[in-house]
Nucleic acid binder design. Structure first.
Lengths: 211, 211
DNA sequence: CGCTGTATGTAGCGATCGTTACAGACGTGA
DNA sequence: TCACGTCTGTAACGATCGCTACATACAGCG
């Protein structure tokens, strides 16, 4: 009865219309929840922004919480797909450019999803565990990527050190995003990232000399 | 008629009771808003948690928005007061311990206020400008403090560099706070801070040798 | 054509929202 | 004692909340 299955055989025209509507609802919900948080977003607003009645929303999603879960899932999927290839071709000589670009890309390409993640991570009132698990998964994958770049960049430091450095980079990225959001004019993202890169490079160099 | 003036002459007993109630309302509101955000907190919940009827809340504060403003103002004031002395006595030799402690203290002593700041900074739906201004003021003061410590620590680097390093430290602190909130077990705050300190120290050392 | 399942539109459910009116309780100054 | 200002309790206001029942509208299939 309820809950649209993803069209097993033929995406008939009516079903395609349904998928389009579902997409429009997701986009509207994502935009609103990113701006006002979960509790601050009402179904009627999603309805107005998407142009579809509330009944349609509840035909496609089983509840407001389910809608949030779908938004997170969709956002995460898009985020995964937007990731550049693991960049095996990057030379070690291409200093921190890759690291810089990776971090900057995360902040420029998908600021909406980052904002949503931070928001529902901080809004800790029984947000459904599925979303939280998804957020952790996204962050862990981001950590893996950063770790690889850091290892390549720093001339293969200790495995543990690379992991910690990656955590630091991710944290700095989140913090810089917040700072830029609070006071955009006073925050030069690129310069800060470059500074961080130089600091980490210096640390890697020293820890290497210590051997 | 409305809006309690801060008792000009004598804090009579009834007025004192009023101040106590005001404090209880503020504490309840602060706790709830920190957990669920602004939109996610209802007056009835504040009423229940504080033990006072809604009419009392509206006698002490003119609206829900006004209550939020007061919560931010109060939190900021407490935060200012909880700041340690400018620490002139700190020796340059006491490596990064001061920096570490300052950052850790901010995260340990006042996590509620930090969470609240981040939440309402990310929930950007016409949050009243007074709160935003207060948040910026708090952050700027935190930056000043960190900058001084960094300058002391790094052996007086360039002024601009110190400012940028301070921004980086603040951003890292925010980001690490978020990371610790998302996945407490996977985030070793102390270790991360120490790593950051070492990286910055290494950078300062190299930039000094370059002279 | 009618039958079936997908998707949308209309109307409204009970609950809760922020907010207010108003009466009363209480300490205080005259 | 009595009027007054401060503060709290009761009860409700209209609006909106998340959500649902139900009647269509439309496409595909026999």
């Amino acid at each position: 009865m309820k809950r649209a299955a993803p069209a097993r055989r033929a995406p008939t025209r009516k079903q395609q219309q349904g998928l389009d509507s579902r997409r429009r609802i997701l986009d509207a919900a994502s935009s609103l929840m990113t701006e006002r948080g979960f509790a601050g977003t009402s179904i009627s607003e999603v309805s107005r922004l998407s142009g579809l009645p509330a009944s349609s929303i509840y035909w496609h999603f089983e509840s407001k919480e389910g809608l949030l879960g779908a938004v997170v899932e969709e956002g995460a999927q898009r985020w995964f797909e937007s990731l550049p290839a693991p960049a095996e071709s990057v030379r070690r000589g291409a200093r921190g450019a890759a690291l810089l670009r990776a971090a900057a890309a995360q902040l420029e390409k998908g600021p909406e999803f980052l904002r949503l993640m931070l928001l529902i991570a901080l809004e800790r009132k029984e947000i459904d565990p599925t979303s939280l698990a998804m957020i952790r998964r996204v962050r862990r994958l981001a950590l893996d990527r950063i770790e690889k770049i850091v290892a390549l960049e720093g001339g293969a430091p200790g495995a543990e050190l690379a992991r910690d450095l990656a955590s630091l980079v991710l944290a700095a990225a989140d913090g810089l995003f917040v700072a830029h959001h609070i006071d955009p004019r006073a925050t030069d993202l690129a310069a800060q990232f470059e500074l961080l890169r130089r600091a980490l490079a210096a640390l890697a160099r020293e820890s290497k000399e210590a051997d």
